[in-house]
Design a binder for these strands. Structure first.
Lengths: 255, 255
DNA sequence: GGTTCGGTGTGGTCCGACCACACGTGGTAA
DNA sequence: TTACCACGTGTGGTCGGACCACACCGAACC
């Protein structure tokens, strides 16, 4: 499955594998600086172009961050930013019709409902220090109460609210995935705003649903939190979806 | 959030944005061939190296496939392979400690349970043609009954079985994510095999659990399918987990 | 002592060159 | 006429060199 059986040791792939191995061996960890591109090229016996191609991949995947210049902040530094790569992946896959928007929404439904469920269950924990931190979500909900909020601003706060809930769950993978899913359908969400007839009524309803979800979480009512979240998201998409057609008959990519 | 506000028009990023825009505009679709690297470079006024860096990213993300030579199969062809990029992302993020293994397992739990739940619900559909196709999963289960199966082979079939269920759900995003999650913890799963004392008993139990899940799906018993799947996965990881320590105090990547 | 001005090493980019590869095509031989 | 083979051509893959902007850092200067 790893596509390394026998065939293609392309130069940039060697670089990627080398770095991955050093990561797995613990020789490289977040915060460390990678050797310079020229050094890396010499060490691996490849050209600098190939090293750069591998570094570019790592950068897009959120593995490293590069800065020019000198000093401790310069060079390629390992940062395991979970969300970055996921967003790029989702966005581009959607653009290329690899990920149907409906499937993204469906998965978001599953994930958000589970997060709400899990948060409610965790809220019942006896040591309150172990209970999830809903403060950031609360602050976002308060911000959304501002009366003169433009739809786009509301949408951004809404996205941040859902992301805050995911973060409260403590699961970095779910958080990153959620951020990625949202990036993938961001364009559709923006376009969907135009289809809403009465924005005032809709935003009021959304505000109420948000509060209801958080209240259910705080009440440790897992079933209610799950269903409220589910209905909240499903309802919104049912209202704003631009293109209900799931998948037009397109030529299969095939080989 | 999209990090495009004002600052960095790095050359390779321009190429990426150009291609993404053409995808969104429908000028490029799966199956199409991208212009040659030299042509693309000339069109965008950047060097070929920058074009290649962008293409490398697209390739790792599963957006394109490149072939040298001539003819209709040569060049960079757009393929929206959903799973490829996800696997690379998960694998590298795990390697860099960006994704805790425990979080991946937790998310897998959520996803698999939901898939089982959804499949069971869909099995109740009246037009049987719309019911999920469990044939591939059945075949894999039969293959797992072979008595002389090495643990590693069993593990591969097990992974394929779970993936087949995801595919049966028809959700490409969930399928790709599932494949990615598995790639991320593949190393741990392999290592976990060594910790199993009585492989014969364990594999027998797994076989039974698999059959039970499929039976519950066929019976359209969503609750049972969900809980069986949940217990199946949770139980397995509880048995084989190598490093139960969730996250050692590591230096924050930060900036 | 404080300030300034190069040196130095970093990534970012471009260019030119060469290679392996695979398809087409045209000439050639049967 | 037909089958075969060799070469041309365009593709990605790779390398090396060159130059740039940048940021630090230290030495020289005021």
């Amino acid at each position: 499955m790893a596509s390394d059986a026998s065939a293609e040791p392309r130069a940039w792939e060697q670089v990627l594998q080398h770095i991955e191995r050093r990561l797995l061996d613990g020789e490289l960890a977040p915060g460390d600086r990678l050797p310079g591109e020229r050094v890396l090229a010499a060490e691996l016996g490849v050209g600098r172009s190939s090293v750069r191609e591998a570094l570019r991949v790592l950068e897009v995947l959120g593995l490293i961050r590069t800065h020019a210049g000198s000093g401790p902040t310069a060079g390629a530094i390992i940062i395991a930013t979970p969300g970055g790569g996921m967003s790029a992946l989702m966005r581009l896959q959607v653009a290329a019709n690899g990920f149907p928007v409906a499937d993204i929404v469906a998965m978001r439904l599953v994930l958000e409902a589970s997060v709400a469920d899990g948060l409610a269950a965790a809220s019942a924990l006896v040591p309150q220090t172990d209970a999830p931190d809903l403060e950031p979500a609360d602050r976002l909900l308060d911000a959304m109460d501002a009366p003169d909020l433009a739809p786009a601003e509301f949408l951004a706060l809404d996205a941040a609210f859902h992301l805050a809930l995911a973060e409260a769950s403590g699961n970095q993978v779910i958080t990153a995935t959620m951020a990625g899913l949202r990036s993938g359908i961001e364009g559709y969400a923006r376009a969907g705003l135009a289809t809403i007839a009465d924005w005032h009524a809709t935003s009021d309803r959304l505000r109420g649903e948000h509060r209801g979800v958080v209240a259910a979480i705080r009440a440790a009512d897992a079933a209610s939190a799950r269903s409220r979240m589910h209905d909240h998201i499903a309802g919104y998409y049912a209202e704003t979806f631009i293109d209900p057609a799931p998948a037009p008959a397109r030529t299969p990519p095939s080989r």
